[in-house]
Amino acid sequence: MTLAIPQNKFEVEKRSLKIGPYDVCSVPTGLFGLDGGAMFGTVPKVLWEKTNPTDDKNRIQMEARGLLLKSPGCNVLIDTGNGADFVAKYGDKLGNKFAEMYGMDQAGPSLMKSLNSHGLKAEDIHHVIITHFHFDHAGGGVTEQGGKLVPTFPNATYWAQKGNLEVATHPNLREKASYYAANFQPLIDAGVLKLLDGPTENFIPGISCVISNGHTQSQQIIKVTDGQNTLMYCADMVPTSTHVKIPWLMGYDLQPLVLMEEKTKHLGEAADGKWFLFFEHDPYCDAALIERNGHDFSVQKRFWL
């Protein structure tokens, strides 16, 4: 899938960011496409297509973007993208269907290419945080090796929410096409998966999580702070910068009214505290600062990190 990113729709500033001991680094893992109507739910196309043009299949361009927190003694990766071993993980039929249906761009950025650009190999990652086990967030955490699926990062502890693993293990009919055992069972088998049970402070130094249930059950939203600078990794609570508006939700979200309450609370904290929001799926920017706009929110400034 090739979509032209609209030029000059947004002003995006390039900047570096350090929080505590961590250099904050964007990790693009690959472009793909999702149906624009599904991504914006009840928002009319005449509004969202101004900034998110579609292809002939009504797909908009999306990024699967992880976040690297890099320090001399501890490298933390948040989410791992779609991964590349579609056929090995899902079988010939489904694996090839994935690449075709979602317009996977396998010639562009990848998880390992991006980590290599920051001077890191898979062995250098100490912690991997999975916000939730949907395939576009957890797919890169497992890879094929010698005909067997194994953790991509052999020296890492993987962190996930107990409640989300339960949903992934027994998915409802609505989410069955997003949760696959190939993305979590190898982690369980290898003994590297550590489960959190609800909001947790400093489970890694400087890193905490809150829970969002609007998109899927027990999605963990990651907060990184040193008391002066704070970043919130929004995952699918706010997938792109255009989704900061409270009513702009995805058709994929299981509990829209719950999600609107969660966005009101967490984005209010971010606006008032001048937190950076990091967007997993926005192809046009990595992060943004937001501000209150009446009873809603709007983007103040966008960044590439």
Rank of each mutant, 00 (worst) to 15 (best):
G83T: 08
T143C: 15
V150P: 02
G198Y: 05
Q145E: 13
L77H: 00
A88C: 02
G273L: 14
H132A: 06
G66E: 02
L111D: 00
Y233M: 13
C285R: 02
D197H: 07
W48E: 00
G214W: 04
G214M: 07
N229G: 03
Y102E: 00
A122Q: 08
A156N: 09
L173Q: 13
Y180G: 02
H137L: 15
D282R: 04
H215P: 04
Q217C: 14
V87Q: 02
L34G: 01
T216N: 07
T242Y: 06
T216H: 06
T131I: 14
L69Q: 03
A181M: 07
N75K: 08
A287P: 15
V244G: 04
A160H: 00
G294C: 07
G147L: 08
G146K: 07
V24M: 04
L47E: 08
H295F: 14
P53N: 07
H127K: 06
D85C: 10
G30R: 01
V24Q: 03
H281A: 10
A182H: 08
E11C: 07
Q220H: 04
K97P: 03
G41C: 04
V167A: 14
K97L: 15
L68S: 06
H215M: 13
L195F: 02
D197G: 11
A64S: 12
D23C: 05
F40V: 06
T200V: 15
I246F: 06
M39H: 03
G147Y: 10
E166I: 10
D272L: 13
F276H: 12
H266S: 05
D197L: 11
G37E: 15
L277E: 01
E100Q: 14
R174T: 09
V87S: 02
N213D: 15
Q145Y: 11
E291C: 12
D85W: 13
L277S: 01
V167Y: 06
L3R: 00
V258A: 11
S241N: 10
P28C: 07
S212F: 08
V150Q: 02
M104V: 08
L3N: 01
V299T: 02
L165V: 09
K14G: 00
D136N: 14
I130Q: 02
Q220E: 09
D35I: 07
Y90W: 10
H215I: 09
L69W: 03
I204N: 06
A99E: 05
L67Y: 03
T157M: 09
T240V: 14
